[in-house]
């Protein structure tokens, strides 16, 4: 928010125009000048109104109507769809799965990201070695979700390389169908998401670590603080603002994750990996229950907006 909350007093400073004479010509010029910023903002506003505001109004409208799109004259049904959704068991399964998937992903992203960032920030290793490792560590970030999904489907095939390594090292007795057995599917998709998402934390935390002044650590060392004490007393507090904003952003994104689930398990088997996003998608595009699907979509929107509110507050607190 530092970007947008700076006081603006500048070149065009329309907020504080100098006192002008009341001549009509001058007033017209004033009015024209006052319109200048709106001119610059027009393309953005048109796009956001047509493709963001209107769809949101539409989806809220849909959610209050008897099955829209499919029916010619849909009836207003009030909150019926919301009650249907909130009392359906599959919705709460999706909520639980989403919470597990998101919670575990965010924590693991943070821990792995922090560990890797600290390894890449140590003075014990040469710069060139670190640069090579950094490039390797960033790799998962360079792949689109579709690629990550097919890659891990290949790796996790029953006769694939992961099962080979696990059985060869006697960690598992038999080949596991990671993505198609109800016991393992949720763990498998969560693991894939962890693999795909930690580099985002790593690069940000690395930048954060490099921003901590070295004399903080030197002073702590003079005071006799050991490595763990330096970590908890300097590193963590210094990184805290970055960690909070990233965790919130990641939380928002991960609760919205669709493509990865859709291309690995499709929400199955037996709904064990059904997330709010796949649940909503299926209601709309497989069951054609657009009214119920819209109600679910609005619920997802409300959850995201609440999270976004906390994100904005965390950002404000930092400035």
């Amino acid at each position: 928010m530092s970007t947008t909350s700076l006081p603006v007093t500048g070149a065009d400073s329309l907020g504080s125009p100098e006192p002008r004479s009341g001549k009509p010509a001058a007033r017209l010029a004033d009015a024209r000048r006052a319109l200048v910023p709106y001119g610059y903002l027009t393309p953005t506003m048109v796009l956001l109104v047509v493709l963001m505001v209107i769809p949101i109004v539409m989806v809220i409208g849909y959610s209050l109507m008897d099955n829209v799109i499919m029916k010619k004259n849909p009836q207003f049904v009030g909150f019926k769809h919301y009650i249907d959704i909130l009392t359906s068991e599959s919705f709460w399964t999706a909520v639980t799965n989403t919470l597990f998937f998101t919670g575990v992903s965010v924590i693991a992203h943070l821990l792995i990201g922090l560990a890797f960032a600290m390894m890449l920030n140590t003075g014990l290793i040469g710069t060139r070695t670190k640069a090579i490792f950094r490039t390797i560590y960033v790799l998962p970030w360079l792949f689109t979700v579709a690629i990550i999904a097919v890659l891990w489907r290949l790796l996790l095939e029953p006769n694939g390389v992961v099962n080979f390594l696990l059985t060869a090292s006697h960690l598992t007795g038999t080949e596991v169908e990671w993505l198609s057995s109800p016991e393992t599917a949720l763990f498998a998709v969560t693991f894939i998401n962890i693999w795909a998402g930690y580099p985002f934390y790593m690069t940000s935390l690395l930048a954060g670590l490099q921003g901590i002044p070295a004399d903080y650590y030197e002073a702590a060392q003079v005071d006799g603080a050991n490595a763990w004490q330096r970590f908890t007393a300097i590193t963590i507090p210094q990184l805290k603002p970055i960690i909070i904003s990233m965790a919130l952003l990641d939380f928002i994104w991960t609760t919205q994750q669709f493509a990865l689930i859709w291309m690995t398990t499709g929400g199955g088997p037996l709904g064990t990996t059904e997330m709010l996003s796949t649940f909503t998608y299926k209601l709309a595009f497989s069951k054609y229950q657009f009214g119920t699907a819209s109600a679910s979509a609005v619920i997802v929107l409300v959850i995201s907006m609440v999270l976004a509110f906390f994100y904005v507050r965390a950002q404000k607190a930092r400035d």
Partner: peptide, 28 residues
């Protein structure tokens, strides 16, 4: 570079729009 009415509102809209889930927009 400009000061204009509703600037703060617009700022908040632009920031919060980022959190709108794609799945919400998909149906409409």
């Amino acid at each position: 570079r400009f000061e204009f009415p509703f600037k703060r509102v617009l700022n908040v809209v632009i920031i919060s729009v980022q959190a709108v889930p794609p799945i919400t927009l998909l149906i409409p």
